[in-house]
Simulated assay, not measured.
Amino acid sequence: MNDPAKPPALRPVQGVAHVAVAALALAGAAWAALAMWHIRLAAAGQPPSGPPEQGGGRHRPLNALENAYHLVSSLAGVATALCAIAFLAWLWSVRDNARTLSGQHHRYAWPWVYAGWVVPIANLWVPRGIIADIHRASAPDERLPHAVNWWWGLWLVGTLTGTGLLHAETADTVIARAYTDVSPLLFVDAAVVGTAVAGALMVRAVTAVQQKHMPEFLRQTAGSKTPGITLSNS
């Protein structure tokens, strides 16, 4: 971790932002594919043999459509994990830059960058607060981009309605739900895809703000011997 007593060096953020946007696009496409399979399952209807999980620990053999759904669901899980890694890498970069640009400590200590997503109750506002603090520190006179609120609102919808990113339902359970009542699944799918789109717009907006203010900061600090005011290539 960076020394909390001094600001870190400015980091180039455009590259990591491009990776985060691409990862968000990949995750959005994966969840759109899940939505298509939910529709296909609903259209096919539940087989006469019943749902995959038959109770008492018994499972019937899956048909071709259900096997395909398991594959699509696994790929969506991988895409989501890659998206989380890329997003956190971007978040650390812009967070460190915001610390340097403002010369002030963040309101949320570094463990909240991870814990803020999983600690109950706190996860309803801490991640958005971290993004808002980053933007405020980077450009105190500019309004928070609308994409931040759209991203966070859609994220909450997707994670609090029963089948979002933070819920660990099995693929067979979701298949059974698609057979009986697909509408809630499609609602969550749409929210997650919307979250990915809004998240990409948010990443671009916050990155653009820092890119705009970094050159002026470097000009003002040119020739200074204070650590943490040069542009790092790492």
Rank of each mutant, 00 (worst) to 15 (best):
S102A: 12
E53G: 05
A20G: 06
L71A: 13
G45R: 10
V119P: 03
H18A: 13
V118D: 10
N97C: 13
N63C: 13
W31M: 11
H38Y: 09
V119Y: 03
Q54N: 05
N67W: 05
S74H: 04
A20E: 02
A35T: 07
Y114M: 15
V119L: 15
M36F: 12
L91K: 10
A115E: 04
G55Q: 09
H105A: 14
V94C: 11
L75T: 08
G50Y: 08
A43W: 02
E66K: 12
W112S: 10
N97D: 14
A81F: 11
L65D: 06
A20N: 07
Q46I: 09
G55R: 02
E53V: 00
I85E: 01
G116P: 01
V72G: 09
L101M: 07
A79T: 00
A115V: 01
H106A: 15
Y108L: 01
G28M: 01
F87N: 07
S73F: 13
P48C: 08
S73Y: 11
A20Y: 02
L41E: 06
H106N: 12
H18S: 13
W90Y: 07
G45E: 01
A64P: 02
A44D: 04
A64Y: 00
G55V: 00
W92K: 05
A84L: 07
S74G: 08
A109I: 04
A29V: 03
S74A: 10
G50N: 10
L91T: 13
L88Q: 04
Q104Y: 11
